[in-house]
Design a binder for these strands. Structure first.
Length: 218
DNA sequence: GCGACAG
DNA sequence: ATCTTGTCGC
């Protein structure tokens, strides 16, 4: 392990600043046969959260394997520090996985983060897997509205820097926020999200992980 | 000081 | 994230 998880919010930010330079912001996963997604659900009045990692075949997009685990969150939800709440649980779910995926989709930001180290970067780096961040809403950055047609996109900007892509994955629905996680370039990340969306707003692996974690429909 | 703020 | 009913549209 590169660092501890029982840290203060100040220590968590230090860790993010230290690890951010290690993220590989380019690359194209090749010979992709298995795409995984990870998600967590915490229900009100329940002490345990449920984390799930689901592996789907590509391009069939059929569930091949899933790992579900229950654990008590040890860190509060703090914007910008999501991985310190969710990653320890998701990493345990990954340990139970038989098959190592070729690509990981994460429900949250990657590079599109105040310190350029969202949960997709964190998981991708610790697991040394190609990873993509695909969030349902914005954490930071500015953008114009992407075109209305599926496939339309607008750059997510922090000043002059492009930190992600605001991507319309389906006509008539809100766009998703795609950013680099690890070892996958932004354009490739957008392409993989589109390839995994089968008529829904979110990629199939993300939907499967959300369901496996016990989350409600979108 | 004020507003914003992944899940 | 979660809580919650009905409702609109393919």
């Amino acid at each position: 392990m590169l660092h501890r998880w029982d840290v203060t919010t100040a220590e968590a930010r230090d860790i993010q600043n230290r690890l951010a330079p290690l993220v590989v912001k380019e690359g194209a996963p090749h010979d992709v046969r298995f795409v995984a997604a990870a998600d967590i659900s915490v229900r009100r009045d329940e002490p345990l959260a449920r984390g799930a990692v689901v592996v789907l075949s590509y391009p069939e997009m059929e569930v091949i394997e899933q790992s579900v685990i229950e654990a008590e969150p040890r860190f509060p939800y703090v914007p910008g520090l999501l991985s310190f709440r969710e990653a320890p649980i998701l990493l345990r779910a990954f340990e139970q996985l038989r098959r190592r995926p070729d690509l990981l989709l994460v429900d949250g930001q990657g590079y599109a983060h105040p310190r350029r180290f969202g949960i997709a970067c964190h998981l991708g780096l610790l697991l040394d897997l190609p990873a993509v961040g695909c969030a349902k809403s914005r954490l930071c950055g500015q953008h114009v509205h992407p075109g209305e047609a599926a496939g339309s996109r607008a750059p997510l900007l922090d000043g002059d820097e492009v930190i992600g892509s605001v991507l319309r994955t389906r006509d008539g629905t809100a766009p998703v926020y795609v950013s680099v996680g690890h070892r996958v370039g932004l354009e490739e990340a957008v392409e993989w999200v589109l390839r995994c969306c089968r008529g829904h707003r979110l990629p199939e692996p993300s939907r499967a992980a959300h369901m496996a974690a016990g989350g409600r429909r979108q």
